[in-house]
Structure formats: C-alpha cells, structure tokens
Design a binder for these strands. Structure first.
Length: 517
DNA sequence: AACACATGGGTCC
DNA sequence: TGGACCCCCTGTGT
C-alpha cells in the first residue's frame, strides 16, 4: 500500500463459510450415452475431430475408455454381435462439454489453446454472446478443441487442526528469504508460521525487520540480519476450536509515521499494533461485514459503519493499493476480471475512473491476483499483474505477467518464459531497479530486461542455430516441456525448452518455492 | 497414470 | 442466516 497517513484502505475479506462440501456426484451417464446407430466411419471422423484415438479392432478390448463409453461399448457389442461387420465394435465418443454437460461441443484445452464453452458468457470479460477467443479484450487467439478431464472432489479438512495437533502438514508456512543477486544463499524459516503467509512487509525505517501475517492467525516480526523472530499477535490464543472460530490474518500493513501495524482478519476485524511496544492498541474494529465491498477509511476515525467511501465492485476485491508516489490514486483488482483505477481519492468515488478487463478471476486454489503499481513510475500509471488465462506460445500454454498502462488500458509488456508454465499470481517490482520478482506455487523467478549485449548475443546464437539446423523444424511439445538442448547456462534442470521470442525479459536466476507465495 | 486434495466464493433454498 | 451445492484454463503429492 502506498503512503497512507490519513486514510487507510482496507479491502474486504469475506467470512469463510467453513462448510462441508459434498463429494461431487459422478457425471450423468445418460447424458454421455451415445445412440448406437451412428456408423463406424462417423465415429472415426468424430473421434479424429476431437483428437481422440480410435482403437483398432484387435485392441479395442484393452483400450482405456471412460465408463460411459464402456457401456456403449458393451451395448454395441451386444447389439451388433455377429451382425453387420463381424466383430466390428464401435466406440462412441460423443462430445460432451465438461462445463455445461451438453453434447455437440467441448470445452477445454486443444493443444495449448483453451476453448470456452459457447453456452457460457465470455470467460474473460463475462459478457454473453462471445467467448474468450473472440473477446475484443483478448490480445491473441487461436483455435482448437480437446477434452481435458479433470476431477474436483471437495472434502472438508481441518488442516489447521491437522498441522497443529498432528504436525502432519509441515510444509505450510515456510518462509524463504533470498538475496536476489545471491539466490543460492536462501534462508528458510520453518517455525515462524505453520499456515500460509498472506502478507509480508519490510519496515524500511528499521532495516531488516520483516513482518509476516499468516492464516495461523499470528503476526510475527523477524530480524533478517540476526534471524531472530518474535510473535507480535496471536488471534487464536486458545488453539483450535473448529473452523468457525479460527481466525486467519489476510491483510497487514505498516504505518511507519505512527509506528503502527494494521492487521485485518477473515472476520472483518481490524487490529492495531504498536510497532515498538509490540502490543495491541485499542479494541478490534469490525470494519467489514459479509457482502460489503472495498472501503476507504480515515485511520483517525475508525468506527464501524463510518467509511470515507465505498468503492463499488461487482465481486470480491482482491486488493487495493494507493499509488506509490502521491497516494492520490487507488488501483483495485476485482474478481469480476476488472482492474479499476480511482484517480482522486478525495473526488467522486461513486464509480471508477477506468475499468480494464483483465483475466484474473480464478476458481480456487490460487493466491489471489493483485495488480500492483510500479513503485518507480513517477507518473503512477504502470501496473503489473499476473494473467490467469494462458496464451498459446509456440504450442505451449503460458501464463504471462502483464505490464499495463492504467491510463489507457494498453498492454505495455507481457512477460513469458518457457520455464514458467505455472500461473504467477504474485509479482513484485523492485523499488529502484528494473527487476521483477515473480512467484508461483513451484518457483520464484527474478526477471530483468535484457541488456543490449545480451540481445545481440541471443540474436547471434539464434542465427547460428538457424544456419545449422534450419529455421522450420520445431518439435511439437503439446503443452509440455521438451528436452531440446538450449543455451541456458544454469544446469539445475533438465527440462529446458524453446526460448520465448516475444519475451523482452530474461530469467536470470531461479529457486524452488513452497506452496503459495 | 490416475486420483485426491487444497477450503474461496456465489447462488439457491 | 446458514447449509448444500456448484464452479472454466491449477498444481502437487501419492
């Protein structure tokens, strides 16, 4: 958050339901059932069109088919036994959309391109009448269809209890500290938190002090020089009493002027801590209730139901940041796939100054995307944010990190690398240098723009390659890494693939990350 | 290879 | 208000 001495922005975090989810029913076989009258040639055509293999007669018994198909298989075998073409068994592979369960079309990946269900509103802009591929907000588009079966079974797990009492989940809450010029010198702290970290703030006025907020309900401060840590706040002093009472800390920010630490939990309460005395100040204030959206508050007058303004959003707001220089603008990221800019915090905040359609809506399981200002940009226009939907990049589905001009909505740059096949929800720009740290569930990458020398060298190498191998032979990767050798210098991974031509940034170093970052 | 699982949010009743 | 149910591009671990 920006320099917020007078007004404090707090985004809402809705209360967790904590409810038990039922195990998903098996899909309706009736819908998947194919009438057995279609000819075998049709079957083959259809199967080919949907990218499925059609088993040879001799291999059909061993062919791995879905239950519904098996049924058809059996029915067809019974019905056509000794009839027509002797021994010929047809396999029905009628297209069933995994999204809307209707037949005749399919949604999912076709190669590196995701095909939307046409029955649904656009996945990107949420408007009906078109899909992502034809969305006017889409940058690039390609076509294809392939089924991508996926199972999503929901069960309730008191993972806090698991980790606290049984100690089973040991990897959660691991804190890693890297020096970005010496990444091999990673330091990990496994005893600071035992649940995921939701916020980390370094106190610039007190160099080397790191504050961390976690779903374990605690705030800790760690001296990065000495490695010494101490707890500041524990919202669950009585331990685990079920999910309905367990408090998790999502929001945290420092007010260095006043030596304050502001903490927000999952129930909508805001807590104040004194940085020096490390004690709580006053009583927690309930500043959000379920259904409320983003609000601005004056920290001097923090009472329930007295916000300075309500910033209207269509859905849950993942983040809101004051602009880094003046603090006069606010940048919000909302689950309705829109980034909003509010130009004057003391002006009319009835509606945003601009709305930029951008893919960051996600189902579950991901750290929420948060568009952040570039702290170096004195014009307060550039923002960085990871993109959810993938881009077909030379046959590989990659999730770029976008640099957006928030004054125009224009995409200034998209950072991709064949080594980053995961979504990158967490992105931090260096406060002084042209460096981006991007995190995913798998890794942390440090990016910087290529120097002219590096670009020249790369062009030279590319030309040499084309001269030696020719420029037209590209190996199909089908969304996965291939093993083609490359000119990468660090050899900690055997999975290297093609260089991203469009990428104007280069990966200089990397390290292994843990869970959500 | 084929799951099981993480536990957030919207909607409906 | 709360529980049941559903949900579109995940990623990891077993």
């Amino acid at each position: 958050m920006g320099p917020t001495t007078r007004a404090q922005f707090v985004y809402n975090r809705r209360r967790r339901s904590g409810g038990r989810h039922a195990v998903e029913e098996a899909s309706d076989e009736e819908e998947q059932r194919q009438d057995s009258s279609s000819s075998s040639s049709d079957e083959e055509d259809e199967a080919e069109a949907s990218g499925e293999e059609v088993a040879d007669e001799e291999e059909e018994e061993a062919a791995a088919v879905e239950p519904a198909v098996k049924e058809d298989h059996a029915a067809a075998a019974a019905g056509e036994k000794r009839g027509g073409r002797k021994g010929r068994i047809t396999i029905s592979l009628k297209k069933v959309c995994k999204v809307c369960k209707k037949t005749g079309h399919e949604a999912g990946f076709k190669g590196a391109v995701y095909i939307d269900c046409p029955m649904k509103p656009c996945f990107l802009c949420k408007m009906p009448g078109h899909t992502t591929l034809t969305c006017p907000h889409r940058v690039a588009m390609e076509h294809g269809v392939i089924p991508a079966p996926r199972r999503n079974t929901n069960t309730s797990l008191d993972y806090v209890f698991q980790s606290q009492v049984k100690g089973k989940i040991s990897m959660k809450g691991l804190l890693g500290i890297w020096d970005y010029v010496k990444l091999h010198e990673k330091i990990t702290y496994d005893s600071v938190h035992f649940c995921i970290l939701n916020s980390m703030k370094i106190d610039n006025a007190n160099d080397g002090i790191l504050y961390t907020a976690s779903s374990d309900g605690t705030i800790s401060c760690t001296d990065l020089d000495t490695g010494m840590g101490s707890p500041l706040l524990n919202l669950n002093p009585n331990g685990w009493n079920g999910p309905s009472s367990w408090r998790m800390i999502y929001g945290m920010d420092l007010n260095t002027d006043k030596g304050l630490i502001l903490v927000a939990d999952n129930f909508g309460f805001l807590y104040f801590l004194d940085r020096r005395s490390k004690t709580r100040i006053g009583h927690p204030v309930l500043i959000h209730k379920k259904g409320s959206k983003a609000r601005i508050w004056d920290t001097r007058k923090l009472e329930a139901n007295s916000p300075l303004a309500n910033l209207a959003h269509g859905r849950v707001v993942n983040s809101g940041y004051f602009s880094p220089q003046s603090g006069n603008k606010i940048l919000t990221t909302c689950q309705d796939n829109r980034i909003r800019v509010w130009d004057y915090i003391f002006g009319d905040l009835q509606s945003p100054s601009r709305e930029i359609v951008h893919s960051h809506d996600f189902n579950r399981h991901l750290t929420p995307f948060k568009a952040e200002w570039d702290p170096k940009d004195y014009t307060e226009t550039v923002a960085v944010v990871g993109r959810y939907i993938s881009e077909n990049y030379n046959g590989v589905a990659l999730h770029p990190i976008d640099f957006i001009d928030t004054s125009s909505g224009k995409l200034l740059a998209e950072v991709m690398d064949p080594d980053i096949t995961t979504i990158s929800p967490v992105n931090k720009l260096h406060p002084q240098d042209d460096i981006l740290a991007t995190g995913s569930s798998r890794s942390i990458f440090i990016w910087k723009p290529k120097t002219e020398d590096e670009l020249t060298e790369e062009r030279t190498k590319q030309k040499a390659k084309e001269y030696i191998y020719g420029s037209g032979s590209r190996k199909k990767t089908n969304g996965k890494h291939d093993n083609s050798s490359d000119d990468d210098s660090d050899g900690d991974s055997g999975r290297k693939s093609k260089k991203a031509k469009k990428t104007r940034f280069t990966c200089t170093t990397k390290g292994k990350g843990k869970s959500k970052v």
